[in-house]
Design a protein around this nucleic acid. Structure first.
Lengths: 215, 215, 215, 215
DNA sequence: GATGAATGAGCTTTCATTCAT
DNA sequence: TATGAATGAAAGCTCATTCAT
């Protein structure tokens, strides 16, 4: 599968020519790489222009501001991830199967779009106001999606994805496991993300199921 | 218990007067608060000086540079945490008990020194060179300590803290759960950290023990 | 003759528009004036910006740093001087005539580019590393050029510009006379530089020629 | 002869204890060393304090300001030089002999107090106002002393040190030769200062004497 | 579209100096 | 005498952004 930037147009954006869209994709990918490496604050528009081999002023044809750049990056990436995971969760199967597919899907997305996802995961608070809320809304929908499946694992399919204190907290813990991977994962040392996903599930599945009886 | 900055002098520091030491503690606490809220890069020395109600130049009596400030903050905090957890792990008990105490200890430290710990957990890469390595070494010792206890939970006391792939990965997952708490925890919504700690253990304990049989 | 900055582009500089080149010339001239008056260290970039009626940040379009500014100033000026004097020395004539032309040429250059030359003569050590060496190399070539002509005056044309201890030392003494002029020369009090040049030659010519016989 | 700082108390200074005087001497010597190496502007009071192994605030017991430090340095050094050269010029002898003694005396002073003299020679304009004028007055007296002897060489003892255009200019040239030595002299490469002095005289003596006849 | 030039605001850091102790 | 602590001012430089071309 070709390694492309996660695509999903930002709101209120008219797509110009196809070539422009392509360039924008490239810009965002390079931007993600820089932001992932140095952090958003520490990445200057000059850095970006240099990395992209464009002029500083040229960047402002694609992004109205530095913040807008981050917003587009987060919006597209998070939107893409959510879309993918919604499709994954919609496929039929037992709660355990759907849970497994979500974990794997998340980690595969991580593997394919590491830089972009890192900028989403760790730079959320670099946005403020409306852009922040827009992205935060996506993030919350994703959290809800995961919670509903976790709830099914805990309570069985009959629970119908109904959130409980336990399912909510467990989801937060699981996202912690998933997102912390940025801090340590190296394919050559730790194996494939699919293996990691399985290990994560093995760590928590019994604990989740125990809830069926006790809570 | 009084809320003080985690105390542990940085290396190579001679303290002049006692009042200076006190002030330094206060500086670091305020600094941690700002850094936790806005991030290290986005926190300017001016911000700090203002928050502390001191002059900008005055800061440089206590820290040779902005980076030195972060280093001292991380060194003291991480050092304190490690010291505490070493003591906790050294107390006798079954592996499960020791594991429980470590989780609780970590979360209690979080509750008491949230800002300082956040600056340690999320700004590690804002240091470079020797300071980075010095702090990284502490972090690694803490990781090892946790891994050895996790290994005992997995393999029983007879395993003697010997690391395995499973114990190492499980520890990374658990640290993910623990550290992600910065992203969501609110005492009024989620209960005490002690409760959170118990929930975490319930989520993973079965999964850890399963290892005793299966691998 | 119009009073312009000594022109010679610095190495590795591509000039954008013609107007930019013009502005750069103006900047260097004003900079030379300030540096000559107050010294390089004591001249701040803010001073320069003010004198030029530009913004502080704008300066950094032309010079990558304060040191780069000094380097460009020295490189252009010294390069221009060397070029001129090489042409002067290349013209045919007796050793005495060529010596006379070099002295006059140097003093005329001084008269036309006093400020720029002063920054070259007295701020050489404000540069370090590669820029220093680049300028120092020009200076040395100039010194060699002068020494070879002085040697011819001492030993006659047959000596072919071969350096001797005497010619080297005499050249150093003569450069002292020439460069010290910055400390005292005022046209209205001391006459033209051409007159000054003649007086210098009268002071040393006999002494140089004496060498023909005795050493 | 012991290498000490050139001693001559600054005006309006009460000498405290002998130990204080000694320390002051040491301070000035170290200061001269730094100023000679880096220039006055580029030398900070912190640099000085560190070099002297004293506290920053401590410096202000000896010097009321940074400028005062430079003033005392220049006043003492130039005063000492003038005193020495006045004694030298007062000794009987032919004009040529007295001229020779002055040149040698100057260069020997240079050799013994290189750093101090450099700060006098090249940092004169770092002073302003009254301090500048005070030092400038000494410098002028020294210039007059030299001019009178040069005039005697030119015009014979009967000229009685009467200044002429020629003697004034020749003195300026000669001071150029003498002072430029800071830029190039290395004992191991160029021989003793006494040798250098003789070479200087050989370079200019004929030219000076020629004046006896022609103007 | 694209870019060189420009800028006000802000950055970290250092300066000479003062003062309580 | 001596010094740690403190500070207003200023240093060199970079920032995100704008605009004429």
């Amino acid at each position: 599968m070709p390694k492309t930037s996660a695509v999903m147009p930002a709101p209120g954006r008219r797509l110009a020519r196809a070539s422009t869209q392509k360039k924008l994709d490239e810009l965002l990918m390079k931007a993600a790489s820089l932001v992932a490496r140095k952090g958003f604050e520490a990445t200057s528009m000059r850095d970006l222009a240099k990395a992209i081999d464009a002029s500083l002023a040229g960047l402002y044809h694609y992004f109205s501001s530095k913040e807008d750049l981050l917003f587009q990056l987060q919006y597209r990436t998070f939107g893409s991830l959510l879309e993918q995971q919604q499709a994954v969760a919609a496929e039929p199967g037992t709660p355990e199967e759907r849970f497994a597919r979500l974990i794997t899907g998340h980690l595969q997305f991580y593997a394919r779009h590491r830089n972009e996802l890192k900028a989403c995961t760790f730079e959320l608070e670099s946005l403020t106001g409306k852009p922040y809320e827009t992205v935060e809304a996506i993030r919350r929908r994703y959290y809800r999606l995961m919670t509903s499946v976790v709830a099914d694992v805990i309570g069985g399919p009959s629970s119908n994805g109904k959130e409980t204190r336990k399912s909510r907290h467990a989801t937060l813990f699981i996202f912690g496991m998933l997102n912390w991977i940025f801090m340590w994962y190296e394919p050559s040392r730790h194996g494939t993300v699919e293996q990691i996903g399985q290990e994560m599930r093995e760590l928590v599945l019994d604990g989740l199921r125990r809830g069926k009886r006790s809570g």
